[in-house]
């Protein structure tokens, strides 16, 4: 299965693009998402990932950068992505 690689700059434009990709996705397995290159996160991207995480088939984070982890931590979503469908 193709891995969705998040860009270095996860701003609103990137979030809009990812939302389109994820909305068109079909299948039964959680989509692997690679967040290892992320240097800057935005709330828009967090919301898209969170929505994708809650919806079927969900997403799974295969790799995460420290910046990405940092964004999850400050927004109280670390545990959300550590458990459930994403796990």
């Amino acid at each position: 299965m193709a891995v969705i690689e998040l860009p270095r700059l996860c701003d609103r434009a990137a979030a809009l693009a990812l939302r389109g990709d994820l909305a068109d996705t079909t299948g039964s397995e959680a989509l692997p998402v690679d967040a290892s290159n992320v240097e800057r996160m935005s709330m828009a991207m967090l919301q898209v990932l969170l929505a994708a995480h809650r919806n079927e088939p969900g997403i799974v984070l295969t790799a995460r950068s420290s910046d990405f982890d940092s964004a999850l931590a400050i927004s109280g979503l670390t545990e959300t992505f550590n458990t459930g469908a994403a796990a």
Partner: peptide
């Protein structure tokens, strides 16, 4: 607490809006 109670389905959401 992160309140995500009004976060819509991904195909209904506008990432530019604040849902959290």
């Amino acid at each position: 607490k992160c309140d995500e109670s009004i976060l819509p389905q991904i195909d209904e959401m506008d990432p530019k809006q604040g849902y959290l």
